[in-house]
């Protein structure tokens, strides 16, 4: 019986990673679900839902040869996952400031205490080696309301981080 797995792939970036891996999965009868694939540093990273009729070992046998041929590491987890279970975020928070240790811990810690459930987070370091800047985008669900998050952000803003919250109004029509 087919089951969902999360397949993680990490390694030095090169061209053809997505094409080769997805072909191998397709040719072996696997389905792709939701996925996040992106370059981080010099590496390419993939986290994807894969539906496979077999066990962890047989899925590894599909993915590992093609991954290893490109110098990539693979990890497979059998998960209790399903499609069409999206959570809709209701707030978007952008944070930026001079990069310094602890910035993510500080901001997400304050937001967590104020009831934020993070659905998606992307962060990046720009600027230069001498003057790095940190930029973070967070989509989340304000389980304790927006004012609680705004007060949390007002406190971290006093510590040199610029943070802005925008409610997400989804227009369905």
């Amino acid at each position: 019986m087919a089951h969902w797995y999360i397949v993680s792939v990490v390694g030095k970036d090169r061209s053809g990673i997505v094409a080769h891996l997805s072909s191998a999965l397709f040719e072996n009868g696997c389905d792709l679900g939701e996925a996040s694939m992106m370059r981080l540093g010099d590496c390419f990273t993939i986290m994807m839902m894969v539906r496979h009729d077999g066990n962890t070992h047989s899925l590894l046998q599909v993915v590992q040869p093609v991954a290893e041929s490109m110098g990539l590491h693979v990890h497979v987890d059998k998960v209790d996952a399903h499609l069409h279970r999206h959570l809709e975020p209701d707030v978007h928070i952008t944070v930026h400031g001079a990069d310094r240790p602890g910035i993510v811990a500080q901001v997400t810690g304050a937001l967590c205490e104020a009831g934020l459930n993070i659905v998606n987070l992307e962060s990046d370091v720009g600027g230069s080696d001498a003057k790095p800047i940190y930029v973070m985008h967070i989509d989340g669900i304000a389980t304790a309301g927006v004012p609680a998050l705004e007060s949390a952000l007002a406190i971290v803003s006093k510590q040199g981080v610029q943070a802005k919250l925008n409610p997400i109004e989804i227009m369905i029509a």
């Binding site: 109004e169 989804i170 369905i172």
Partner: peptide, 13 residues
């Protein structure tokens, strides 16, 4: 920019 969904496109915004 704004977030949209559609009755003709379920489960995606």
């Amino acid at each position: 920019k704004g977030r949209e969904g559609c009755m003709s496109v379920p489960d995606y915004t």
